[in-house]
């Protein structure tokens, strides 16, 4: 019996924008099923460009992306977008429907699922993020932290193979940050988390990958990477004042 395909397999991915700016220069990344991986790197490293390749929003450069064995190309686009759940940074971009429930139902309905199944998935996804009972509320009545958790639910309802989070802790207050961490830790799903928040990466992701200048420059246990001041300094990564990754439990 062969091992299951990795949740995410990126091979030699290179990409230049139409204006000639090249953002990726051959990225290799393999994320096994059930792993939680942090994607670190300074602004302009190519993190967002990489993320937009994972579900085929950007295509056409060199190299390949496969999600659970399925190559990302024009024919598979709809299935790839079901398998890759991207949670964007600003929940107001993610939550565009009039109510929370309709927003969580948006993905499943696009998949053409029957209505009872859609309703069951909406209820389950909202419960998973601790927002059960909020289905009929308009997004602008929720706190920022609640909106961020609902944004996670909008992709959970599609039963993704891998959850991709863009700066999940940004703009959250400490309580909202902890609540989101509890939700993410409870999810039985592969996670790729793009973040500048190094303590958050250490808390949630056993493994980290550093992207800089459009290539992967480091890949290893998060604690080891964060304990390497030379590596951090070289790639404009900084720990918060007083934070020592070796003493964190």
């Amino acid at each position: 019996m062969t091992a299951p395909a990795p949740s995410l397999l990126v091979e030699d991915l290179a990409f230049a924008y139409p204006d000639g700016h090249q953002a990726l220069f051959g990225v290799d990344l393999r994320v096994e099923r059930g792993e939680r991986v942090a994607l670190l790197g300074p602004n302009g490293a190519g993190k967002t460009t990489l993320v937009l390749h994972l579900n085929g929003i950007l295509r056409g450069g060199r190299g390949s992306v496969a999600v659970a064995g399925l190559p990302v190309d024009q024919r598979n686009l709809q299935e790839v977008r079901r398998r890759v759940g991207i949670v964007f940074q600003d929940p107001d971009d993610q939550l565009f429907m009039p109510t929370v429930g309709e927003d969580v139902a948006f993905g499943p309905r696009n998949l053409g699922l029957p209505e009872p199944e859609v309703r069951a998935r909406v209820a389950a996804a909202l419960a998973q993020v601790g927002m059960g009972g909020a289905a009929d509320r308009p997004p602008h009545h929720l706190s920022f932290g609640q909106r961020r958790r609902v944004a996670v639910a909008t992709v959970l309802s599609m039963h993704p193979e891998i959850l991709v989070l863009d700066e999940p802790s940004s703009n959250l207050d400490p309580a909202g940050r902890r609540e989101l961490a509890e939700v993410l830790e409870s999810l039985p799903v592969t996670v790729l988390m793009v973040t500048h928040d190094l303590p958050y990466a250490l808390q949630l992701c056993p493994r980290s990958v550093v992207l800089d200048g459009g290539v992967v420059v480091a890949d290893g246990p998060t604690r080891e990477l964060l304990a390497d001041p030379v590596l951090l300094a070289r790639h404009r990564l900084e720990l918060p004042y007083g934070f020592d990754p070796r003493t964190v439990p």
Binding site: L52, R81, D93, F96, E102, F106, G107, R109, N110
Partner: peptide
């Protein structure tokens, strides 16, 4: 982008 990422194909799925 967020809509495309959740399988939007130009038609709003109705309840």
């Amino acid at each position: 982008l967020a809509m495309l990422s959740r399988g939007y194909t130009g038609r709003m799925p109705g309840g």
